[in-house]
């Protein structure tokens, strides 16, 4: 299948030199997307975390030791591994903006997409979302609650995209060409250091256009050719190396801008 081209390409640029790893993005994401609190949430093998902050280490010690924090949403790959494998078209990449969608009422829970995604961005609902008594009153209207047995993932807070379009329509603007900042996912909005930037990476008017092309910008596992729409920026070479897997072979990543 040929990757689809879009006029608008929503992308995220995460400045890893600014991320303190505080976790506000993860919390905001959970709140926005109605992820029920999990009793054993440190067991990352069974949790739902559309946004997950990884800790990267340069593996040195003492004053040489360095860490970096890497927030990992769904990469919204331009050439997603997860979409073509879904047997029931519960996920697609067809909408202007290039967000990889996932519909829960269609999903049968085969988990093939999870096996396909090397970023572990897709999560399976192991249990029904049961909120502590009363907490269902604090559900966000943005995302439907998902029953157990279906797969879900980050969708760049897609409802906010819809709301931004409605607002543009109301105000007489063009919903197909939103200005920078009109649409922001919850993680980008809440980040206390502003490490997460968001916008249309193909639109020169948007800040991320330039950031994504900066010399220190990279994407995770570029060599696999999945063409993610999430970019990372770090001035630290070891961080950039850890983002792709060329550290093992010593060869730098393939041409940065895949189709």
């Amino acid at each position: 299948m040929k990757a689809k081209e879009f006029k608008v390409t929503w992308g995220m640029v995460v400045d890893l030199d600014k991320c303190t790893g505080c976790g506000a993005c993860m919390t905001a994401c959970q709140v926005e997307n109605n992820i029920a609190p999990m009793v054993d949430a440190s067991n990352k093998m069974r949790t739902l975390s559309w946004m997950l902050v990884y800790e990267l280490s340069n593996k040195k010690s003492g004053a040489e030791a360095e860490v970096a924090y890497l927030p990992r949403p769904c990469m919204q790959c331009g050439n997603p591994a997860c979409v073509p494998v879904c047997p029931v078209i519960a996920t697609d990449k067809n909408e202007e903006g290039g967000i990889v969608s996932q519909i829960y009422p269609r999903c049968i829970g085969c988990r093939y997409c999870m096996a396909a995604c090397p970023y572990h961005a897709r999560y399976f609902n192991w249990e029904d979302p049961v909120f502590p008594k009363g907490m269902e009153k604090a559900l966000s209207p943005s995302t439907s609650t998902r029953p157990r047995g279906v797969v879900e993932k980050c969708n760049f807070c897609h409802t906010r995209f819809m709301q931004a379009k409605d607002k543009a329509r109301q105000e007489g603007g063009n919903p197909e060409s939103l200005p920078d900042g009109a649409y922001m996912p919850a993680c980008a909005e809440i980040c206390p250091t502003g490490a997460i930037s968001f916008g249309d990476v193909k639109n020169k008017e948007h800040k991320v256009f330039e950031l994504a092309q900066g010399k220190d910008a990279f994407r995770l596992l570029e060599k696999l050719g999945l063409n993610p729409q999430v970019y990372y920026v770090s001035k630290r070479e070891w961080v950039r190396k850890l983002g792709d897997n060329y550290a093992a072979t010593g060869k730098p990543g393939a041409a940065k801008k895949h189709s």
């Binding site: 976790g23 919390t27 609190p37 949430a41 990352k44 907490m135």
Partner: peptide, 13 residues
């Protein structure tokens, strides 16, 4: 409750 996820498996097992 909404912050439990931030606790990593290197902090609590």
């Amino acid at each position: 409750p909404a912050n439990l996820l931030v606790i990593s498996d290197k902090e609590l097992s």
